[in-house]
Nucleic acid binder design. Structure first.
Lengths: 385, 385
DNA sequence: CTGAAAGCGCTTACAG
DNA sequence: CTGAAAGCGCTTACAG
């Protein structure tokens, strides 16, 4: 396993290191025969250039792309990453994985990226931190692409999905099914994606000639507890809605639970629509009708944007918005002909909600609000022993 | 953003590059005052050493750990990765992410790893490819740790979960609930994890004085279709079981579907237990009782093993088997007092199963058996201690 | 305890 | 078209 270097190849091919370097980099001015010889020797000896040396020699351009993700447990992030990897794999770049779970980690990550000149570009998934450090890096010439940004928007190149159109299609679907009283259980109102989802909701209603009823709009924080509470409240209140649109799938699950807890049935009494289409949404009962975000495609798109920024002179920042798609399943049905009374009023709401909230999905979603993400569980890195 | 180098720091601190390097590496023989001065200058200028140069200078040891994963979409892999990242983050290493989706990608990955001297160590998740390339790398001195290996087993250091104990606890739970006729819907019989799960099943029954009924053991391939088919067959057959243990959760979902399709109820008529505890298992209806594999902890454990192999002289390969835990939910209940007749026999099995199989979760989990496995036999070593 | 020097494996002008 | 030389930013013996 003695490492074979450029010097070895040069010697064995009877040329200089310079020449080997030229063929290595596919430069034009090399005699075809020489090139062939060198390539043959490289193949014979299974030569692969040292990445570190390559990076050092090329004063600048490293062969790495940094990928900052907020913790890999969120399934949405996993999908995005898959899209990214499928594109980067086909390039000469390698992915360096940074995970940040909070502000502190995040600044550490940026420090490392900043100082080490390690990466040529940066992909940032589900960013929900202060934007300044990234803007600074970008301003200093480091290509950056944001994917599915939460929180504040910026001028940095970005890939998002179309929250507005997605929400609008969800509500349009309910309208087609005959619903007129449609509630909206919202995520954090300061998040742009939620602003857009809410606008899609109100525009769809307005377009159908339905007045907006403020009582049907319930702001929250992507927390299933909130969704649960709002749902119980909506169902027990006067003139209850016949359909509920939730701003993400985990919240929609909480809506389903709340409807169940009140003794009503989905979709016979109440229709429910979510947003994201995380994998489990096809498997809850009833299977959830929801707005699919194209996470893999978003990752791939962002990777391609970054690669092209790395190879050509990059133009102005692009903001790509990808289309969503309505996944129609069983949780939304025709508006009920008659309204059943709420069979039971959850006597002890706290009790009813208690055990469910200890569940991994619920708790971690509550502690890490984001659009559509569905953390897999609480972390305990206790290896045992 | 002019990159500040070790030379700059040396000049500004009034010392030589050598000295800066010494404090950089925490070497002892440096005057405390000098050290303080250098550190201060580094802090003032936000100095971070170039990783490439560091790697080159240290003839050998690169600051990278390779992480080979079979595609990030599998939820299990996401959990494992999170555990890995949480440990590696705290070290001086960075993670380079390689994804392989098939044999071809895999050999490409190994080539890159092999040649470039890029990584100091390798973490391999859910390995299900020929083992030779990895054995060769390991033999050549590259530290490798396998996590949750599928397929064939090797002498390489590894972290698994305890399939045998997990299966045994699942069946013991059913026995406690009064069940006597317990079926087992298996994964691929050649996979060590399935061998162990089946052994846990048979040992639990034998220990309870129950004879093994070969008709209740149904081999398959981690494919939900098989689980579905077997379940229908078991339910419609004579002397049907009162409980079914499935070798992984997606198969358990298919069991739930099949029971539902036959008009029986879980857990009133049939109890169901799975294996894995993937996130959605808490959200199917009824919530699935299943054996939880500690994926995050497994990832963390493996990362720690690799780091220690990188810093100390590594001893003989260790094989760590981590304990599972039974997640008790609603899909398993007391054995029914009386046996209802099967209300309906699925008229067209093909039709019934068709649409479900097009679902993403089913197909991807079916084509990618993602479960833990045990070293066949006796390689057991207790987790670090 | 500290500095001068050589070297890691590559790239890049610069000559020829 | 090709080679000799200098340099990338760090580390590591080796002197002192």
């Amino acid at each position: 396993m003695a490492k074979v270097t450029i010097r070895d190849i040069a010697r064995l091919a009877g040329v200089s290191k310079s020449t080997v370097s030229l063929v290595l980099n596919g430069r034009p001015r090399v005699d075809p025969e020489t090139r062939a010889k060198v390539l043959q020797v490289m193949a014979e000896h299974n030569y692969v250039p040292s990445v570190a040396a390559t990076a050092l020699g090329k004063r600048g351009g490293s062969p790495f792309i940094g990928l900052i993700v907020p913790g890999l447990t969120w399934r949405i992030v996993a999908s995005i990453n898959y899209g990214i990897a499928s594109v980067v794999e086909r390039s000469k770049y390698e992915i360096i994985l940074y995970t940040s779970t909070n502000d502190r980690d995040y600044s550490g990550v940026v420090d490392r990226v900043l100082g080490a000149n390690l990466v040529s570009g940066l992909l940032v998934v589900n960013h929900n931190q202060p934007m300044e450090p990234l803007v600074e890096l970008y301003g200093a010439g480091l290509p950056v692409v944001l994917i599915n940004t939460l929180g504040v928007h910026s001028d940095l190149p970005s890939v998002e999905s179309d929250s507005y159109a997605g929400a609008r299609s969800a509500v349009a679907h309910l309208l087609e099914l005959g619903h007129r009283r449609i509630a909206c259980v919202q995520g954090p109102p300061q998040f742009p994606c939620c602003v857009n989802r809410n606008k899609g909701y109100t525009d769809a209603l307005t377009h159908a000639g339905i007045a907006i009823d403020a009582d049907l709009i319930r702001p929250g924080g992507f927390r299933p507890q909130d969704a649960y509470r709002h749902t119980v409240d909506l169902l027990c209140g006067p003139d209850r809605p016949t359909a509920i649109f939730a701003h993400n799938d985990p919240m929609a699950y909480a809506v389903l639970d709340a409807v169940d807890e009140c003794g009503l049935r989905v979709p016979d009494d109440i229709s429910v629509v979510g947003f994201d289409d995380i994998v489990s949404s096809a498997h809850v009962r009833p299977p959830l009708t929801t707005v699919r975000q194209p996470f893999e495609e978003m990752g791939a798109q962002a990777a391609e944007m970054l690669l092209s920024a790395l190879s050509y002179e990059s133009g102005p920042p692009r903001h790509v918005r990808m289309p969503t798609e309505l996944a129609i399943r069983a949780s939304a049905g025709p508006v009920p002909r008659r309204r059943r009374r709420v069979p039971k009023q959850p006597a002890d709401l706290h009790h009813a909600i208690g055990p469910k909230l200890t569940d991994a999905m619920y708790t971690s979603d509550a502690s890490s609000p984001s659009t559509g993400l569905d953390p897999a569980g609480t972390l305990s890195t206790k290896p045992s022993g």
